[in-house]
């Protein structure tokens, strides 16, 4: 049997995946997005691809992050590859959470909040920041989940 990159796709697993933020955010009331979104690390021209329910964040002319519903990542990846876009399922690599209000964001990042989406240091960790009104979605490498959970909760505590 030939090999593939299926081992990168958590959505292909039969058991339920676990969020890296589950412990850090337990009982905090902060929304954990880790298992809501699949993330594809894509290289190629994504313009002209009509993708509903999918957000494309361009990191460079070549490279984009594609956010989609968690379970859809393997399918979307296949679909993109079929259209000549090299895509890697990075869903397992990112944790995500949502915070509300500029105040807490100002305590965490020097990114200009009126220019999202953006990638930059949030609490010293490289983070993708998406903004919808007063809500901010943050995606960062899952190995920082405990740290980031603690850091965000601490920032909120400082504002309380």
């Amino acid at each position: 049997m030939s090999l593939s990159l299926d081992f990168l796709s958590p959505a292909l697993g039969e058991p339920a995946p676990r969020s890296p933020l589950a412990r850090a955010l337990a009982r905090s009331g902060i929304r954990d997005l880790s298992l809501d979104y699949g993330v594809l690390d894509a290289r190629g021209d994504l313009t002209g691809h009509p993708m509903e329910g999918v957000e494309v964040v361009r990191l460079s002319p070549e490279r984009s992050f594609v956010l989609c519903p968690y379970r859809d990542a393997p399918g979307l990846r296949e679909w993109l590859e079929g259209r000549g876009v090299a895509a890697i399922d990075a869903s397992g690599g990112y944790a995500g959470l949502e915070v509300e209000g500029e105040a807490v964001m100002r305590r965490l990042t020097e990114l200009p909040l009126d220019r999202c989406p953006a990638v930059g240091a949030v609490g010293h960790v490289a983070t993708l920041v998406l903004r919808d009104g007063d809500r901010f979605r943050l995606f960062f490498r899952q190995e920082y989940a405990d740290y980031m959970g603690e850091r965000v909760l601490d920032a909120l505590e400082g504002l309380a």
């Binding site: 090999l3 299926d6 081992f7 990168l8 796709s9 958590p10 292909l12 697993g13 039969e14 058991p15 995946p17 676990r18 969020s19 890296p20 880790s34 298992l35 869903s91 397992g92 690599g93 899952q142």
Partner: peptide, 26 residues
């Protein structure tokens, strides 16, 4: 265990061994 895995048969520790690579959420 139901999780898509890449199995590498290598042996840093000198015994029969399988290095299993699979998605972090599992």
């Amino acid at each position: 265990a139901g999780v898509p895995t890449l199995l590498l048969r290598i042996g840093f520790v000198g015994e029969l061994g399988y290095e299993l690579h699979f998605p972090s959420p599992h």
